[in-house]
Write a protein that binds this DNA or RNA. Structure first.
Lengths: 214, 214
DNA sequence: TAGATTGTTAATCGATTAACAATC
DNA sequence: TAGATTGTTAATCGATTAACAATC
């Protein structure tokens, strides 16, 4: 869905697009695309295709990016600071509104116009906000305990930059961004050129025999 | 493979581990694990299991992390600086040895003990090094042109932080880390709780009917 | 030897694609 | 109307799992 959405954004020259054209742009088969889309509704016109404007609008709704999301950011180390400074988030409707750290030297400081708050107050601060998404940019050792705080605060989605798995209950979503892991994956592809070339989100990539990607 | 490797690191209490135990730790089925492993060789002992020390060693070789990799980093913005400062990379054998930027104000400055070089010299500098992996941390607008330079320099694997797709020839591997994209995915899971809950690398996650993840 | 667990084949299951009636 | 392309079903294909002989 993300990929269809992105493809649509890049192809706003025509008014209408067919599943076949979307296939060319995304690498997914036309049948796959039609099937995926009809899971959410009937957005196309037989004999014509999909109106780009309409479908973009629909996809926004489906992806939940037809609104603004408040985001809390925990951990103001190098990564945390890089993230607050990143304009791209706000542009896409992800609005970092709260910063937390445990370091007394950092608490009270301002970063990108936001005051860094004491992590001890995380629960009530987040409870009093609309944030349901959090970015976790703390050291691995602190990841689980901070996660527990976030869960208590009612956070339902976590983007985890800590290089460790965190445990959350059902109904809470975690996505991990682990740079070392990604580099290891690249290393793997370099030394095992025969292993499936990167699935990532490029479906055009290798298929064939069941070579392990895990 | 990454996941098996990580699981092994976390389970060094016993000397031997069975595919069944690995299954518990990773969420993959025992049969799947045995199959994946035998793709690379016969590492187990019937009736006993896998010797953790041996298998760890084997996996290191398979993943290509039984060596040091030199890594070039292009783009010394917020993200680039956060990445050089990150100790985790070196600890895992990924050694950032070269920094590049195009900003005259940054060129010549030192960052984490490394001199920032002029991107105009990227090709020869990298050619004269052992780097085959590059991290791309430049703005979206510059991503493709810098990629082209990297390709000319002989880079074979790119970790791309720019929020845009880059085009590379066959045989070159790209992994994208797109934060906005990940947040969009979280947003999607929040508004579509019925859609497949995160595959990421947690195979325990939902299965059932073919709901679109794309 | 009896018990356990691998490596691997055969059976199952699910996802992808081909194809086409419906329809603009 | 003829041409095009959707939505959807049926057929294909591939991946996952169950099961077991081999073996420690």
């Amino acid at each position: 869905m993300f990929i269809y959405y992105r493809a649509l954004l890049e192809s706003r020259e025509t008014e209408v697009i067919s599943s076949e054209e979307l296939s060319q742009l995304t690498g997914f088969s036309a049948a796959q695309i039609r099937k995926d889309l009809t899971y959410f509704g009937q957005f196309g016109t037989p004999g014509r295709g999909y109106t780009i404007k309409d479908l973009t609008h629909q996809l926004k709704g489906i992806l939940g990016i037809d609104r603004e999301w408040e985001v809390a950011l925990v951990g103001m180390g190098n990564m945390g600071r890089a993230l607050v400074a990143y304009e791209g988030l706000k542009n896409q409707g992800f609005n970092v509104t709260q910063l937390f750290d445990s370091d007394p030297k950092k608490i009270g400081m301002f970063c990108a116009g936001l005051k860094i708050k004491n992590i001890d107050n995380l629960k009530e601060e987040i409870r009093n906000s609309a944030a349901r998404i959090a970015i976790l940019a703390v050291p691995a050792g602190a990841a689980q305990s901070v996660t527990n705080l976030l869960l208590e605060a009612g956070i339902k989605a976590i983007l985890n930059f800590a290089p460790t798995r965190i445990i959350v209950p059902d109904g809470v979503n975690v996505l991990n961004i682990d740079i070392t892991n990604e580099l290891t994956r690249l290393s793997y592809y370099l030394v095992q050129p025969d292993a499936l070339k990167i699935a990532d989100d490029n479906p055009a990539a290798g298929t064939e025999s069941p070579e392990p990607i895990a």
